[in-house]
């Protein structure tokens, strides 16, 4: 039974595409046949993050319009078996997507794939609504800052009313919170909302916390999803999140600042003094 996952946030630049790419790689590397679809028509980015931009011939809109078959448009990932990318069109806009068209493509993909990851565009317009409409579960990507939290809250409202599941009364889609660009140091300084601040407003199960990391930018620019970089904290955090998504019980990491040895020494001294 296929599972359609939408990665959404409302706000732009919080890490939807990074998350979609890493999640798709994570699921595929565990042996699930996975596709990741770029719904950001006109501003396609997923192909860059996945490092397949030079192999794009046909795109999602071509398939919807019947100008290409699904198999012609799907790009097989070079590094991970069982992973396919359906890129967005760069030359059109989001109005090129239709509800019936998206439904037909997803139906066809449902026959062969285990997971379909839909990378939603920012905003709450057509593209974002179509990306979430057919979803079974949602990953809401949020940065620990107030505007991102409010936008995510808005998306959760739409997820509970503007999806096929909600309209057909088949129950809610499962919602997961993924907190990205988390910096324990700045939280400690009071510059950033803490995990509990965010949780208090959004109040949905936490899937993972991805620390602010140099590795993410490096990965984006080199076209290799950050989850592949198993040495990096962000990559490990994404692996944990994928494991939790699949129902495994994994403790949370990277929530607290790493105490450096100098500080530890001083705190020891302070204790001595008392």
């Amino acid at each position: 039974m296929v599972k359609i996952i939408v990665v959404t946030s409302g706000k732009g630049g919080v890490g939807k595409t990074t998350t979609s790419a890493s999640f798709a790689v994570g699921l595929a590397s565990r042996g699930y046949k996975t596709a990741v679809i770029d719904f950001d028509i006109g501003l396609r980015n997923l192909d860059l993050i996945m490092g397949c931009e030079r192999r794009v011939v046909y795109d999602f809109v071509n398939v919807i319009r019947g100008e290409a078959t699904l198999n012609q448009a799907l790009i097989r990932d070079k590094h991970t078996k069982e992973l396919f990318i359906l890129p967005a069109s760069q030359t059109r806009d989001k109005d090129a997507l239709t509800l019936e068209g998206v439904g037909t493509v997803l139906d066809e993909m449902s026959k062969t794939f285990d997971y379909i990851v839909c990378d939603s565009p920012a905003g709450i317009e057509r593209g974002a609504q179509l990306a979430m409409y057919f979803a079974d579960s949602a990953i809401v990507v949020t940065n620990p800052e107030v505007s991102s939290v409010r936008d995510s809250d808005r998306m959760l409202g739409l997820l509970s009313s503007k999806t096929k599941r909600a309209e057909e009364g088949r129950g809610h889609i499962t919602e997961h919170l993924l907190l990205t660009r988390y910096s324990p140091k700045r939280v400690a300084n009071g510059d950033m909302l803490s995990l509990s601040d965010v949780n208090e407003i959004l109040a949905i199960p936490l899937l993972g916390v991805i620390p602010e990391s140099q590795a993410v930018l490096r990965a984006s620019n080199s076209g290799v999803p950050v989850i592949v970089d198993t040495e990096s904290d962000a990559g490990q955090a994404y692996m944990d999140a994928v494991a939790r998504f699949l129902g495994e019980d994994v403790p949370f990491r990277f929530l607290h600042e790493k105490p450096n040895w100098l500080k530890r020494l001083f705190s020891f001294k302070e204790k001595e003094a008392i």
Binding site: D153, R154, G157, L158, S160, A203
Partner: peptide, 8 residues
């Protein structure tokens, strides 16, 4: 009985 989100 369900949360009322921003914009609702």
């Amino acid at each position: 009985t369900t949360p009322i989100r921003s914009g609702m």
